[in-house]
Amino acid sequence: MKKPASKILTVPNIITGIRFLLSGLLAIFLIFEQTTTIALIAFVIFVIAAVSDWVDGYYARRYQAVTVLGKLMDPLADKVLVTTALVMLIPTGRLPAWVALVILCREIVVTGLRGVASSSGIVVAASGLGKLKSTFQYIGLGALIFPLGVLPIPALYQIGLFVVYIALILTVWSGLDYFYKLRRVFLED
């Protein structure tokens, strides 16, 4: 049976779709030489995409517009945005590759854990720790994307990197937390 378009084309789902597009646009702007203008545009794109993560979730809950498609696509859009920023910042020298690797590996593992749990009929909602991790990721990555010299904060990149390291700790911690909470799924025969 075909789903009605109104169940697919909801405001939160459209916002999530826009986040995917913004991630692609962010990648394009991070490819170019990072002049002040280009970096500022990349930063604005990143901030809009990061804020849209909060907006679509708030709207979906507030107006009971939660859909199966949204439950699938929203976390994927978040991962695509963070992955884009992480990977594109490596060649700029603003982010060590190993940090991006650990964060991306955790995301893959947790996505796999959620998939296994889902196949066992267990729905795994985002935890408070996971949301805190995302907030630190967004703040740290935003600071690393922001152009130097625009604000009178000479250590902006160091601050951004420090926040990303906090996000890294939260990333590993929340990954272990997901594994611990789902351990019974893996202990079943």
Score class of each variant (00 low, 15 high):
V66G: 08
Y59K: 06
S120A: 01
L156Q: 15
L144P: 03
K71D: 07
C105K: 05
D56A: 12
P12I: 04
L25S: 07
T37N: 13
M1I: 11
I139A: 03
A42I: 04
V123C: 00
I108K: 03
Y58N: 02
Q64D: 15
I15D: 09
L72W: 15
G17E: 09
L40I: 03
L9Y: 12
I28Q: 07
I31C: 12
F46T: 13
I139E: 01
L148R: 15
G115T: 01
G70C: 11
I28D: 06
I169T: 06
E33N: 14
G115R: 00
E33D: 14
I15K: 04
E188I: 07
Y180K: 15
G57M: 06
I153E: 01
P4K: 04
W98N: 13
I145Q: 09
L69C: 12
F186M: 10
G93M: 09
L170D: 02
L148G: 14
G175D: 07
R183F: 09
G149N: 01
I103S: 06
V163K: 05
Y165L: 15
D177R: 08
D53H: 12
G70T: 15
A42K: 03
I153K: 00
V68Y: 13
A60C: 09
L148P: 06
T37P: 08
P12D: 03
F136M: 01
F46P: 10
I18T: 15
A77H: 08
F29H: 03
W98T: 13
L113K: 01
A65K: 08
I159H: 11
R183Q: 15
Y59W: 13
A60F: 11
A155P: 04
V99A: 12
